[in-house]
Computed example of a mutant assay.
Amino acid sequence: MEGTTSSSELGSVVVGVDGSEPARRAALWAAAEATRRERPLHIVYGADTDGRALYVSVESIENVRRAGRELLDVTAAAVTEQFPGLQVNTEFSRSSPVPSLHRAAGLHGTIVVGNRGAGGFGSLMLGSVGLKVAAGAKTPVVIVRGIEDGAETGTVLAAVRDEHDLEAARYAAREAQLRKSSLRLLHVWNILQSVGNVVTFLDDVDQIADEHVHHLNAVGARIREEFPDLSVQVDAEKSTSVASVLVEASREADLVVMGGRRSSSYLGPTLGRVTHTLIHHSHCPVQLIPRHGHEHGSQS
């Protein structure tokens, strides 16, 4: 039903662990999220033992298995201590972390990773494995960062470019409802990118601004219609750097939600520049929502 929040709409919560402190914090954040959604938490350790079996000894593989299972048990115990009513499942995967997490999330789950990893075997370091998880995911991915001080703002921020971001705005609205928070829809347009290299008159700039505001208001109107009990704030800003405005706005949010646009490269799918900057510098967790069938533009 539109305008309501159910556990099935937001799906299950899957978190990857590797023994690092950021991954431990990500697991606790994921546990809180699973509790809000009233869904089980699925903790995954992707050991990549199958991929390394030909290159390391049987003893080394067994040590990795033992360490991985111990890590899963310790993480599950820490989560259960803080969230005693939460159902927690663990999975030791013989595959590498990226396919392990994608497979565990299925069609509707949300993947949670820390902003840095331990490095080495089973790493979830953002910039390597973490980026591949985010870039290749067909379901939402949350990069947990900026939660060390524990302060809450009571606001969920959604980055909106146009009507193609309506689904991301819906995700943000559901997250805001679960948190009993307000929702801020923020559209940032790059005036230099909009006018290109052509010298324009002030009237032209005003017309461009009106077009951007029109797209934002259209999304805002749909969200208010579908979520009538939610407090929704709509803001538009112009800047020479979209990424810097979003990073600064993240200081006043508990979660940033945005469409995870991708561009192609010879290495496979990669995240756009704005998205890449935000997930490395945001002051709060960032949730990326895949844009099925409407992925365009390599700058975002």
Rank of each mutant, 00 (worst) to 15 (best):
T155W: 09
V141I: 00
R179C: 00
V199N: 11
Q193N: 14
V188A: 09
D165K: 13
T155E: 08
R145F: 08
A135P: 00
V144R: 02
N197I: 12
V144F: 09
W189E: 10
R174M: 12
G154C: 03
A176N: 02
I191G: 13
D149F: 11
D165L: 12
A176H: 05
G154M: 12
L178F: 05
L186H: 05
V144Y: 03
V144G: 03
V198A: 14
I147K: 09
K138A: 04
R145M: 10
L131D: 06
K138H: 08
N190G: 03
W189I: 06
E167S: 03
A134K: 04
G130V: 02
K132M: 03
V160R: 03
L166W: 07
E148G: 01
K138F: 01
N197R: 15
H187R: 09
D165W: 12
S182A: 11
S194N: 15
V133A: 04
F201L: 05
A151R: 14
W189F: 15
L178T: 01
V141D: 00
A159D: 01
Q177G: 04
R184S: 10
A137L: 03
D162L: 05
E163W: 10
A158H: 07
I143D: 01
T139W: 02
P140K: 04
R174T: 08
V160N: 05
L186K: 06
L157K: 08
D162T: 05
Q177A: 03
S181E: 09
R170E: 06
A168Q: 00
V141H: 01
R161P: 00
W189D: 11
A172G: 15
H187Q: 08
G146D: 09
L202K: 12
T200N: 06
T139E: 02
E167I: 07
A158V: 14
I147P: 01
V195I: 15
K132H: 12
I147M: 11
L202Q: 12
A176E: 00
Y171C: 06
E148C: 08
R145G: 00
K132D: 11
G130N: 08
N197P: 11
L178I: 02
A151Q: 15
A137S: 13
A169Q: 07
L178M: 12
V195C: 13
N190F: 03
V141K: 01
L178Y: 13
E148A: 14
L202C: 07
A176T: 01
A172Q: 10
V160G: 07
V133H: 00
L178H: 05
V160W: 04
K132E: 09
R145I: 11
V160S: 03
V133F: 07
V144D: 02
L192I: 14
G150M: 05
T153G: 09
E163S: 15
A137M: 05
A135C: 08
S182T: 12
P140M: 00
Q177N: 06
S182D: 14
E148I: 01
A168R: 02
L185K: 07
R145N: 05
H164G: 06
V142S: 03
S182Y: 13
Q193R: 15
G150N: 04
Q193Y: 14
R170L: 00
D165Q: 10
N197V: 09
K138C: 07
H164N: 10
P140Q: 05
A168L: 03
L202I: 10
R174S: 11
D149H: 14
G150D: 10
D149I: 00
E163F: 13
T139K: 04
L166R: 11
